[in-house]
Amino acid sequence: MSSVIVVAPIIIANWPAIAAAVAAGVGTLGFSVINTAELQSAMSENVTREEIEVENSEILDSAAGTGEQMVVEKDGIKATFTRDARGALKICMEGKGKSKTELRQMGEALMGRVTQQYAYHRVVTELKQRNMTIVEEGMTETESVKIRIRNW
């Protein structure tokens, strides 16, 4: 082994790229994307809400009319991904019978998976651009994605 560097990704992308990472990431935790009509029925009173701002993120301006919001749901727990006023990514978690702490934990877990998908996509795109061939790729027991590249 020669060197080991640990990197905390900063999400900088336009909304379509963020949306793709959200869709892929939340799916690994059993959440699925819902449309606006379903959103109305999913919304109800007496729900607990918790907002999480993702500090290490910047959503770049993209084409007008892309509707920079995405709603995902699982077992009555709803997570809304949006672009806040500063241009950072924000998640609003909502759920009946859940504490703010529980919702925050779920939101952070979702954000982790979204970041994982974002980083995976960036890495794989970069490897392709450098003509670096992946010789092994897989999921570990701890749900990490592992990629191995040899003699490029």
Partner: peptide, 17 residues
């Protein structure tokens, strides 16, 4: 020569050469 990249479930990336 190998490069090993691991992305954990929180998005943290470890790059090993």
């Amino acid at each position: 020569e190998e490069l090993e990249i691991e992305i954990d479930k929180f998005g943290k990336v470890t790059v090993k050469t």
